[in-house]
Computed example of a mutant assay.
Amino acid sequence: MNSLSNRRILLIDDTPAIHDDFRKILLPPVDDNSDLYLMEAALFGQTAKIEIPLFELDSAYQGQEGLAKVCQSLKDNRPYALAFVDMRMPQGWDGVETIEHLWEQDPRLQVVVCTAYADYSWDELLERLHGHDRLLILKKPFDNIEVHQLANTLTAKWEMTERASVQMSKLEQLVEQRTHQFKQASEALQREIDEREQLESQLVQSEKLASLGQLAAGVAHEINNPIGFISSNLGTLEGYFSKLQDMLDAYQRSEEGIASTEILEHLKTMRERVELDFLREDIPLLIKESKEGISRVGKIVKDLKDFSRVDSNQEWQWA
């Protein structure tokens, strides 16, 4: 149905006369003089009154037939708003069983129980059908005005219930939409927090690296100074030892001119004690190894300078 207005009523009763009575009450004849009413309204300035049927009434004579009509109405998207159901229908389901089946298919259906006998107490009906908010009782013989009032009231109730349901559905969709928006905003905020934490971590790491670079530059500078004079001293020491070597060679050559055996024996003993031959071989090796060590330390210092971007090579290089 395109509109929430619903005046469709189903009457389930095994007595044909009851159906005739309901048609007379709920489907009054339509006046065929509607054009005349419109003309009178135009001539005399009166409000046109055109009486039209207030309800659409369908009939079923057994519970099974009524259930089939309800199912078909749901399939056609034209549900009934109200059903008048007779309590005693000997050829099939009674009223209670019929209502149970109807509500299984359409829980929104408003129901009026029509009965002249107390087969069930009102409390028994409510307890069995659980229909406190959608079930009323109409005692036979019924009053025309009462039938009309029930029809008006319950179809209006169905409409209000549907409107509330539609509004509730819209509110639920809106809540779901807002919840989704909040979730997206929360996720975006969490991403921003994560990115900020990551940036802060990178900043801290950068500060640590900067501090480490400054430390490396300072260490390199401090190490570079002793490296310089140690390297210089080793070079000087190497020169001095070379001169000592020459002097020792001259002393050894001059031993041939010494006549005293005792002096010669003393010099020999001294050379053996100090291991002069070994020293003359080992000292150059020690100086060489020390210079290599200084060179390695210098390489480390250069790497520290490159790491700290101090005195680093600014030329393009293949890598």
Rank of each mutant, 00 (worst) to 15 (best):
N2Q: 11
N2W: 09
R7W: 05
R7M: 07
R7T: 13
R8I: 07
L10S: 10
L11W: 06
L11T: 03
P16E: 09
P16L: 12
A17R: 04
D21I: 14
F22D: 03
I25C: 04
V30D: 03
D31I: 05
N33V: 03
S34D: 14
Y37K: 10
L38D: 14
M39K: 11
A42F: 06
A48M: 04
A48L: 04
K49L: 15
K49C: 07
E51Q: 08
P53H: 09
L54K: 07
D58Q: 10
E65F: 03
L67S: 00
C71W: 04
Q72C: 00
L82K: 05
L82S: 06
V85L: 02
D86H: 00
R88I: 13
P90Y: 01
P90D: 02
P90S: 00
W93V: 01
D94I: 01
G95D: 04
H101P: 02
E104I: 01
D106V: 05
R108G: 08
L109G: 02
V112Y: 02
V113L: 13
A116Y: 00
Y120P: 01
E124D: 11
R128A: 06
I137M: 11
K139N: 15
I145G: 08
E146T: 05
L150Y: 10
N152D: 13
L154E: 10
K157A: 12
M160N: 09
T161D: 14
A164E: 12
V166R: 08
V166Y: 08
M168F: 12
R178L: 13
F182A: 13
Q184V: 12
A185L: 13
S186F: 13
Q190S: 11
I193G: 01
I193N: 07
S201E: 14
Q202R: 11
L203E: 08
A210L: 13
G213F: 00
L215K: 15
V219P: 01
E222F: 07
N225G: 04
P226H: 06
G228E: 15
G235A: 13
G235M: 14
G235K: 15
L237G: 06
G239T: 13
G239Q: 10
K243F: 09
D249T: 11
S260T: 02
I263L: 14
L264R: 15
L267K: 12
T269A: 15
T269V: 12
T269L: 10
T269N: 07
M270E: 14
R271Q: 09
E272H: 08
R273Q: 15
V274L: 11
L276W: 02
L276S: 06
L276H: 02
F278L: 10
R280Q: 12
R280Y: 03
D282E: 14
P284S: 03
K288I: 02
K288A: 14
S290M: 05
S295L: 07
S295E: 07
V297C: 11
K299T: 10
K305C: 05
F307H: 11
S308Q: 03
D311K: 01
